[in-house]
Structure formats: C-alpha cells, structure tokens
Write a protein that binds this DNA or RNA. Structure first.
Length: 283
DNA sequence: CACTCATGTACAC
DNA sequence: TGTACCTGAGTGG
C-alpha cells in the first residue's frame, strides 16, 4: 500500500517507538537472517524516509534499506507471536512492540557509502521542506514523454505513486498524455505545490484525500470511503463513474504498464492545465 | 477454493 | 513492451 506518505508515516512511527533503544532483530522467514543476527541486540538510532525508501539506522553505521514495492507491508503494533512466520522477512521488537515486514521489494543491509548512494539516486521528495524541484522542471522542459509517465519517475518526483499522479493531473485539468515540454512553468509550480499539500495531508491523516468538500455529491454529505486506498479521490479507480465536477464518466487506460484514470471532459486532449487547482482538501 | 489484481521496480528481449 | 518478483485482499464459483 505504499506511496510516499505511507513511508514517511512508518519512519515517524519507527522513530517514536524504537529510537535509542536496544532492539531484538530477527528474520523468521530466514531470507534476512544473517543481517538480522548482526543487528540483534544493537541500538536502533532512528528511521528516515526519502520518497518510497525507508532507511532504518542502527548503531555501528549499519542501515537497513527497505522498499515495500507493490505488495510489501510493514506493520507496527503491540508485541505478539507472529501469525505466519514463513512470510515474516524482518521483525524489529522491544519489550512491548514489534514491527513486522512482509513481501518487500528490497530489504538489504547497507554500508554508510551505500546509504549515501541510495539517497543520492533519489529525486526531490515533495514531503521534504528542503526539496528543490528545479532539476525536475529542467528535465520536464526537455522531455516529450507524457506528463503522466514523468510523474512516476522517482528521480523527478520521489514518493509520488499512481494515486497522487492521477489526482494531481485531475486537479489541474491536465491531459495525462501532454508531453512534459508542453507543461507551462506556472502549472508545474502549482503541481509541485499541490503535491506537497496533498501528500502532507496524507501523512497527517493516513489516507489520500483529494476531493474538495464542495465537489462531493450533495446527497452523500460525507466522503464515501469506498475504495481500498482509504480516502476520497476524483479519478483513481473510478472508471465509468460520474466525474464529481462535470458528471461525465471517468476513463481508464494503461500507460507504460500502469492504470491511468482521468476525466476526458475536465482533462481534454492537449490541455496544459490551470495554475489554480479547483479544489483543495480540508485542513 | 481458485483466481485476479494491486498505491512498484528491474531486467530481458 | 513484456515479465518476474513478493503477499494478501477481494471476487467468483
């Protein structure tokens, strides 16, 4: 379930629960057993999130690099015996709590130099206040790739996943297939700012909400919360349903192997978008 | 119970 | 562009 906001929440929870404590580290599944043995009984110093990368730092310059991929899960809760140890890649625990990692794309032990490489390879993350989108803008100006595809490039927009890209394109009325070089500078600036707003909100509440209250169907009076991502969105996985703004059906297609959803009326072919997203989520 | 699909990425052709 | 990888929730029979 991971876009960047999930990773940032996990980093904060990890730090809150385990920072500066001696922790038990194990790999019941066995695939991370050697590294776990090395870390077991050492001090966890803190967690850091960058894009979709989660870095767990331990004493003696040891870092566990986790990327959840599409299906990985990391759950932190009260200490209990594991329910299915055959899939439990990594457990970090203290006397009262345990964090259980299953199905990650990567889980590797890094040296400080490798840790620095991972950080350097990642693009600017809208969730980091110091992130500089200038290099991203320069790349877009030279690219004829569809803006929808560029938004998933982690060297350009770290932490943005399929939901955030679809929603930010809708909110700005941008044609998903518009070449990056055709995106006006002011629209790009607004897209970046909107990503920061939407992702920060998602970190705070734990779900992706992108729909302005004014656009929710009046009869509902509240978010529908009818999809697995837990929030209320304009286009993601709403193919065939009525657009909240114009009432026409949301469209779906596949682009570079990923599901793409958009409103053909609000985001017509060639549309370069607006500088003021029609809707902002509630505070 | 079998099957599909997923908020992701890397690699082979 | 297709496919492999890792797991589990949802769906349909």
């Amino acid at each position: 379930m991971p876009e960047g906001h999930v990773i940032h929440r996990l980093a904060a929870a990890f730090t809150d629960t385990f920072a500066d404590q001696t922790v038990a580290v194990s790999s019941p599944q066995g695939r991370f057993a050697a590294a776990a043995a090395l870390l077991d009984g050492s001090v966890f110093t803190g967690a850091e999130a960058l894009g979709k990368h989660l870095l767990l730092d331990f004493a003696a310059d040891r870092t566990v690099w986790i990327h959840l991929g599409l299906i990985g899960k990391l759950r932190l809760g009260p200490l209990q015996p594991p329910t299915s140890p055959e899939t439990l890649r990594l457990r970090v625990a203290n006397a009262t709590h345990a964090a259980d990692l299953r199905g990650p794309q990567w889980c590797r032990l890094l040296t400080p130099a490798e840790r620095a490489d991972v950080m350097a390879a990642c693009g600017p993350d809208p969730l980091r206040p110091a992130a500089d989108p200038t290099p991203t803008w320069q790349r877009l100006q030279r690219s004829s790739q569809p803006v929808a595809q560029l938004l998933l490039d982690q060297r350009l927009f770290a932490g943005v996943g399929n939901i955030f890209r679809i929603e930010v394109l809708f909110r700005h009325g941008i044609d998903p297939l518009l070449p990056g070089k055709h995106l006006p500078a002011a629209v790009f600036a607004s897209v970046w700012a909107d990503l920061t707003t939407l992702m920060t909100h998602a970190v705070r509440v734990g779900s992706i909400d992108t729909v302005a209250p004014a656009h929710l169907p009046a009869a509902m009076g509240r978010p529908q919360r009818d999809d697995a991502h837990g929030g209320e969105v304009y286009a993601y996985r709403r193919a065939g349903q009525a657009c909240y703004v114009c009432g026409n059906p949301i469209a779906r297609d596949t682009l570079a192997g990923r599901n793409l959803f958009w409103c053909p009326t609000c985001q017509p072919p060639g549309s370069r978008g607006t500088t003021s997203p029609a809707a902002w989520p509630t505070a």
